[in-house]
C-alpha cells in the first residue's frame, strides 16, 4: 500500500493508493456535498453532487469516483462548482415531485438540507411533474417514487450489506425507477427480510416506515457503522 500526497483546497493531504478524493477530503474535514455516496457501500457516481476540479483535467470529476494520485491538485469549492451543484439540485427537485410540506421526511431530509445549504431559494428550470407510483404493499414499509432521486443507496445496501438484493433500477431517463425483484410489488418479494436497512439509508422520503406522518420519518444509520467496522476489523462490538 503506497501513500500518496495531494493538495485539496490548498491543503496538503495524504491517503493510501486506491482511496478516493472524496474519502481523503472527508478524513481531513473537507466536506464535499454528496447524495449517493454512503460510507460502507461501494460508490457508483450516480448523483454528481461531489463534482470537483482537478488541475490538468478539462472535465469536472466526481470525487467519489476519482482515486487519488501523487501530486494531484484538487479544488472542491469554487464559484463554478457551487453554481453547478445548485443547478444539479434544482434539476433533481424539478424532475421528481417533491412536496416537502406533506412529506414524511420534511425537516429530516438530506435532499432538502443540501438544497438549503446550496442556497436554492427557487427552482429555475420548469417542473416536470411526472406521474410516478407509490408502493404500499409491504407490511412494514412504503416506497413513494415521487421522492426518489435514483441514488441507488437502497440498491447497494440491500445487496452488499443485507445480502438480499431486492432492489434494482429499471427504465431510462425520466422513466428511471426503482423495482423490487423483477418489478413485483415490494410486499410480494420473497427475498426481502424486512430488515429496513434500505429505508434507513435512503436520503429522502422515498422509502419510509408505514404509519409515519408529515416530518416524522427520521433515519438511523448507526447499524451501518457497526457492520462496516465489524467487517473491516473482524470484531463485532456493540459500540465501534
Amino acid at each position: 500500500m503506497s501513500v500518496k500526497t495531494l493538495t485539496i483546497d490548498g491543503k496538503m493531504m495524504t491517503g493510501v493508493e486506491g482511496d478516493t478524493v472524496f474519502t481523503v477530503a472527508f478524513h481531513n474535514q473537507v466536506q464535499i456535498p454528496r447524495l449517493c455516496h454512503l460510507g460502507g457501500v461501494p460508490d457508483v457516481g450516480a448523483c454528481r453532487m461531489c463534482l470537483v476540479e482537478v488541475e490538468g483535467r478539462s472535465k469536472l470529476s466526481a470525487s467519489c469516483m476519482t482515486t487519488i494520485e501523487e501530486g494531484m491538485v484538487v479544488r472542491t469549492d469554487t464559484e463554478q462548482l457551487r453554481e453547478y451543484r445548485k443547478l444539479l439540485m434544482e434539476l433533481l427537485l424539478a424532475e421528481g415531485n417533491h412536496v416537502c410540506s406533506v412529506c414524511v421526511s420534511n425537516g429530516n431530509c438530506e435532499l432538502q438540507d443540501l438544497a438549503t445549504h446550496l442556497g436554492v431559494d427557487h427552482v429555475r428550470v420548469p417542473y416536470r411533474h411526472p406521474r410516478r407510483e407509490v408502493d404500499l404493499s409491504h407490511e412494514r414499509f412504503g416506497l413513494d417514487q415521487n421522492r426518489c432521486i435514483a441514488c441507488t443507496r437502497c440498491v447497494r445496501t440491500c445487496d452488499e450489506v443485507e445480502g438480499a438484493h431486492v432492489w434494482d433500477m429499471a427504465g431510462r431517463g425520466e422513466k428511471l425507477h426503482l423495482v423490487a425483484d423483477l418489478g413485483e410489488p415490494w410486499g410480494n418479494s420473497e427475498n426481502c427480510t424486512k430488515c429496513g436497512k434500505c429505508v434507513q439509508v435512503c436520503p429522502t422520503g422515498a422509502l419510509f416506515t408505514k404509519g409515519s406522518a408529515v416530518g416524522e420519518m427520521e433515519k438511523d444509520r448507526s447499524f451501518l457503522k457497526y457492520i462496516v467496522y465489524g467487517r473491516e476489523r473482524h470484531q463485532w462490538v456493540k459500540k465501534p
Binding site: L93, N97, V99, C100, S101, V102, D121, H122, V123, Y127, H129, P130, R131
Partner: peptide, 14 residues
C-alpha cells in the same frame, strides 16, 4: 411554498 414552487396546489399537475 405554493408561490415559490407550486407545492400542494401543483400536485394536480400529475
Amino acid at each position: 411554498d405554493c408561490a415559490v414552487s407550486g407545492n400542494i396546489t401543483a400536485m394536480r399537475n400529475n
